[in-house]
Design a protein around this nucleic acid. Structure first.
Lengths: 241, 241
DNA sequence: CCCAATTTTTCGGCATGCCTAAATTTTGCC
DNA sequence: GGCAAAATTTAGGCATGCCGAAAAATTGGG
């Protein structure tokens, strides 16, 4: 008897889910596919572990991979990844809105729960929340059928002086950073203006808050990379025709 | 460096938690400690697996055990078990009250989640629910500090004809049975009267509902064992002086 | 173009938990 | 009390995922 034939789309083990999720997250921003060693770093495992697991993911038809080349999700892999992303973000939203968690507390809890909860559970949470489109950090929540609307934002880091915009996304990867943003009262949907950059690769100077009472602030590289901005059209930039 | 020294009270693996939970659940009703083979049946694993795991539980000082004799929880074991029971029952209550789950849907979901959630998560759920004393099946919810009030109920099965009482607890072990109770409109806190027993080990005849419009019903052994009743004092029984 | 540095894979090992089959110990019936 | 049946433990294996070390493939600088 064949061993209980996986529902194809269905979960896979907790490890499989993590691998697929990280591969997806990488591709979401970089346009290059992820390499074995980058995957190892992000998962905190040895390169050899990645090699083995990737072989398994190929068998499960979740990724495409030729030896010594980069790793790309298949359609099924992408669907699984989107399921995991949806779970994670619905959970985070629920923790904040219904259970009074703070911004910086939700990531780790969601990271654990996302592997365990049923689709029913997620969908009922989402329904209770009114099927929100984004989570507390501004990350888009894929719908149950797997569609996502990724807002076209850029990292604050990449904007030149003079640009203005609205914060649409704040990376939840580093809880300390989130606490820093909290303490500086930097929040989703705040307006922001890039003033300039301190010389010799120094901090980014930005202005936050309403145009009258704006606070000026120095942001280090990590902070500037964690903030994603929907940039307003700018005189010096004709890309947005 | 010693390997990340367990917080003593802290979780243990998912398997350890299940073993401890089943050992506890058994002792909650039977006054004899559980044997190896009974444990195997309840966990759905082979006897040999139990032997191995019990050795590990002894090492972890969660149970006491001499070879070939029964298995008993230590203080730490009981504390861990109560933590798990609390988690399970808070989860069940939350699923029913906040997410609109039905009675018979919650057990399996809670069974999975109880191993994954943090204490914070459980305590915030409990707080949101107003720190309930019992779950949707009437099972008592241990408080965060590990105190439980077990209502002194007996299985309906064990009552003789003529006894009356109130249903205080309905075992959630069998979802089909729960659906049966639902369809028969048998609910927590309903009054019940034992009419008698069909001859030759037959079904138990009981009467449910308000004294005027009561329905009479035959209950099989499994159904009668799943219903726990707080029995009223009875003329023929002088145990409650 | 070639060789050394880097990346990736393979190879043996470890830990967890489970299994079946084979001891071993206990129990209960006569 | 003895002996067979039942319960329990030990022994040897399997699957999953991880590791470090060693081998193999790729790469990039001279």
């Amino acid at each position: 008897m064949p061993p209980a034939r996986k529902t194809a789309l269905s979960s896979g083990s907790s490890s499989v889910q993590d691998y697929v999720k990280v591969i997806y997250a990488f591709t979401e921003w970089q346009d290059k596919p992820i390499t074995s060693s980058q995957l190892a770093v992000r998962l905190g495992v040895a390169n050899s572990s990645v090699s083995e697991m990737v072989r398994k993911l190929v068998e499960l038809q979740l990724v495409d991979h030729r030896p010594y080349s980069a790793i790309e999700l298949t359609g099924a892999g992408r669907r699984l990844a989107l399921t995991m992303v949806r779970r994670h973000r619905v959970l985070e939203t629920f923790l904040v809105q219904e259970l009074g968690y703070a911004w910086d507390e939700v990531h780790d809890e969601a990271e654990l729960l996302e592997h365990t909860v049923s689709d029913t559970f997620i969908n009922r949470m989402a329904a209770k929340l009114g099927n929100p489109q984004r989570d507390p950090h501004g990350d888009p929540i894929p719908s149950a059928d797997g569609t996502v609307h990724v807002p076209n934002a850029v990292q604050l880091e990449e904007l030149d002086g003079g640009h203005t915009g609205r914060i649409t996304r704040i990376s939840d990867a580093d809880a300390d950073l989130l606490r820093f943003f909290s303490s500086e009262q930097i929040r989703l949907d705040d307006r922001v203006e890039v003033v300039g950059r301190r010389p010799f690769g120094g901090a980014l100077v930005v202005r936050f808050g309403p145009t009258g009472s704006a606070r000026e602030l120095d942001l280090g590289d990590q902070a500037a990379a964690a903030l994603w901005v929907h940039s307003d059209p700018h005189p010096g930039c004709l890309l947005a025709s």
